[in-house]
Write a protein that binds this DNA or RNA. Structure first.
Lengths: 355, 355
DNA sequence: CTGAAAGCGCTAACAT
DNA sequence: ATGTTAGCGCTTTCAG
């Protein structure tokens, strides 16, 4: 089934068939009807790649994420995918488990014609690619990572951290520890800086004995294990235990809570915890945390990327989302949280996502 | 940059250039070198769609999943994606939130040339598509869903359920309840049947007052909310409380545990729970559950699909994985599970996935 | 408004 | 072994 077949059947030229399918106005509604009729009868479907080749446009976007099984990315991707569908775009997803794979995927994305643009998540764009992407003017938008020469979407870690710490302080905590991810991650650095700054601003003291930066390279320390070991390590130190912790991600909190429970500590009674992300399972653990609007980030990423595709030379722009404090039970507030809470219910399934 | 450019520069014909890039043996290593040299100098990349058009092969597969934010699918997809990459294939992912979207995606997948084959997850293939897919011989493999005319990959719900129940019985439980998903889902039906059968086989009695099938349509009742409400409903009944529950998915267990805790019950002391899936967060909740080998399912799905692509007329085949019982703390065994347990550690990150 | 024809970049069959 | 040519299926001039 090609346009030739349907052209022959409808007794028109292939150009006309093409015009009909491209909604060209210069076609009599009469011939249009005729063509449509034949096309549906023959169950015609345009060949995607032939179209792409002729149009020089693939209607396909690609997304490169660090880890497949990371809720943060999945939730952002949901926003991406759902806003892409109505536009007729398809999404290719690449999970880059290491630097080598990242480069492989980046190369594929640059491969002419493969995709119209790409989304890079939380990964630093290797130097050798920045030149290539800019030179070839390949549309690229960065999500949760930054480079001055490309569009990006970020979360304000400074404000987010400040809000989290001030929540703890407002609850009466004076000795606050931090469990951080690996400092080679930019968000980890920003969160640490803001943590210290906020503590000092409130006349409290930063005690480095209760601040732990992960040395794990796996997922840059944003992992359950990293959280577990950091907390266990800290609890074994011969120091005055903090009454509260700021932990740089929900997933680390879950590990840290494991370590706390092992030692017999109760949350929030013995120690309060506030973390960052608000991934879906945060509510199952009743975690007070800084919410990142992942779905919205995905939507905006798509918007930016599509804009870039249309406007190759527009000035680069960057947008920062401000995270919101979500109060659940891990800081001793709102202890009577239940699964009934309609605010909490259903936030995690597509049909009821905040849009 | 096209083969013409590099052909001109290298002073050869375009055919030769093409041959070099397709590793044709009929080319002198001399000319090959020359071509490669020019190509790398000009930073040439073959145009994916032109290739696809000429080869009649896209090197792209698509996967249709019911919900984006469902760990089961994500984990299977990880297996899919990782086994695809080395083969040079790309993966397009479609999240179908409803019947309409499902049909839209199926149509896209059938669109000639778009993909070489598709993977359909846990969704019933609508009748009108079975004919089309078979007629047009479009490669399709079903994962966690079944149709006699297509290849499929399944999990043995009957054996899985039997194993789970017998574990409970071996622990001394005699009054066992079940919280099930919506019976319009095939796995839910199979699990219910096997539950009753196993109970009876062991000389126990099936009490319908402690068996609840979800009426939720959202995700067919495989959701936290469905689990929560089912359990709450059951606990409010004026009956003898079961000492143990078989719950048809981990995600429902998490909801059910919420309901149990609200009523002041402790797990596993007051009630034991065994469920199904072993999604990543099951271990965070210390859930004893039937493990589905999701990563392996993804790998096998790819293998089957690629085979089908090469052998359009091979007989249809179906493979059933047998789930394994993973004993954690929710049945009162192995209570001293810690985050240290190396068996448990790292199972959830790509680099250390069981292969 | 419509048909014919020239690509889009590549592969593969056909010559040489 | 290598160059040439005819498609792959569609879009888009260019005539008419």
């Amino acid at each position: 089934m090609t346009i030739y077949d349907i052209a022959r059947e409808a007794k028109v030229g292939i150009g006309t068939v093409s015009r009909v399918f491209n909604n060209s106005p210069k076609v009599t509604s009469e011939t249009r009807e005729k063509v449509i009729l034949v096309a549906t009868r023959l169950n015609y479907q345009p060949h995607a790649f032939a179209q792409a080749l002729a149009r020089k446009r693939s209607n396909t976007l690609s997304a490169i994420i660090p880890f497949f099984t990371n809720y943060f990315f999945i939730q952002v991707l949901q926003g991406v995918q759902e806003s892409l569908v109505p536009l007729g775009y398809d999404l290719i997803i690449h999970g880059a488990n290491n630097q080598e794979q990242l480069e492989e995927y980046l190369s594929r994305s640059m491969r002419k014609g493969r995709t119209d643009g790409t989304l890079l998540f939380s990964l630093e764009l290797p130097d050798k690619f920045v030149e290539e992407f800019t030179d070839k003017k390949i549309p690229l938008v960065l999500v949760d990572t930054f480079h001055p020469q490309f569009d990006s979407i970020l979360v304000d870690n400074t404000i987010g951290t400040k809000t989290a710490i001030e929540h703890l302080i407002s609850l009466g905590h004076r000795r606050i520890g931090m469990i951080n991810a690996n400092l080679k991650s930019a968000p980890a650095r920003e969160r640490l800086l803001s943590f210290k700054k906020t503590i000092v601003e409130h006349g409290l003291e930063v005690d480095d004995a209760i601040v732990i930066n992960s040395t794990s390279t796996r997922n840059d320390g944003f992992s359950r294990e990293a959280g577990y070991f950091a907390m266990r390590n800290l609890l074994e130190r011969d120091i005055v235990r903090p009454t509260a912790f700021f932990i740089s991600s929900d997933i680390q909190s879950i590990g840290a809570i494991g370590a706390l429970k092992e030692k017999g500590f109760r949350i929030p009674d013995d120690v309060a915890i506030v973390s960052f992300d608000d991934i879906e399972i945060a509510k199952y653990f009743d975690l007070t945390t800084m919410h990142q609007p992942m779905y919205d980030m995905g939507e905006l990423a798509v918007k930016k990327l599509l804009f870039r595709i249309e406007n190759l030379s527009a000035p680069v722009s960057s947008f920062k989302f401000t995270p919101d404090l979500i109060i659940r039970g891990s800081c001793g507030k709102n202890k009577n949280y239940t699964f009934n809470d309609t605010n909490e219910m259903g936030v995690h399934e597509p049909t009821e996502q905040p849009r």
